[in-house]
């Protein structure tokens, strides 16, 4: 299973990934069209000013098991058994923010989307660009990243290469911890790795 691997130490904060992500999640899927859409498309990854680095890209790690899925009271979050992604169904999401309460990475945004026009806001996050994947293309953010901060690769490779891919190491440690103890404590070891 392939996933987006984040290497924050390489990020220069150019915001190209955010722009590409917003465009990919517009109805038109191109910049000009996206600019004029009634519901403004939102990027599903964030860039923060980092502590030691210029910027820190933050996005959904598609955890397995996914804490957001366990707390979703609307049955809107599921795991895709083939792609390995954690998916939110905007037609079921009720904007209750239980997922934000559970997400250890703080990656959720609540806003309108053309995919559920009847809802004022729904939970939005990385879906790893399913349309692009189906067409054999890279996720939009990875394609836009010119400095190697966002790459696309096999989960296993990334797990072996923990030192290089900090974010992926976090993801891996989460999985390993989840095997050992369920419930809250598993996240404790996650944070040890984080900091």
């Amino acid at each position: 299973m392939k996933t987006v691997i984040v290497r924050p130490e390489r990020c220069v904060g150019c915001w190209q990934c955010r722009l590409a992500c917003a465009v990919e999640h517009s109805r038109a899927k191109n910049l000009v069209g996206a600019l004029f859409e009634e519901i403004k498309p939102k990027p599903r990854l964030r860039l923060y000013p980092g502590r030691l680095h210029w910027a820190f890209p933050n996005k959904c790690r598609h955890c397995d098991p996914a804490p957001c899925q366990a707390v979703c009271i609307a049955g809107a979050i599921s795991k895709d058994p083939v792609r390995g992604t954690t998916d939110i169904d905007p037609a079921r999401c009720i904007n209750c923010a239980m997922c934000a309460m559970a997400c250890p990475f703080g990656v959720l945004t609540y806003a309108a989307t053309f995919a559920a026009p009847e809802r004022r806001a729904v939970a939005l996050k990385c879906d790893q660009c399913p349309d692009r994947e189906a067409a054999g293309r890279l996720p939009a953010c990875v394609e836009a990243c010119k400095v190697g901060a966002l790459t696309y690769g096999e989960v296993e490779d990334a797990q072996v290469d923990k030192g290089r891919a900090l974010a992926q190491a976090v993801f891996a440690s989460y999985q390993a911890a989840a095997e050992a103890v369920p419930g809250l404590p598993e996240t404790i070891s996650l944070w040890r790795k984080l900091t």
Partner: peptide
């Protein structure tokens, strides 16, 4: 998550009280 760790916040790499606190500060 920070609460679940039950560790003193002074051991975190940033002061979580600071107005500029955000998740990136914990990872960088």
């Amino acid at each position: 998550q920070i609460m679940a760790r039950k560790v003193p916040v002074k051991d975190l790499p940033v002061d979580i009280r600071s107005a500029a606190f955000h998740p990136g500060k914990l990872w960088a």
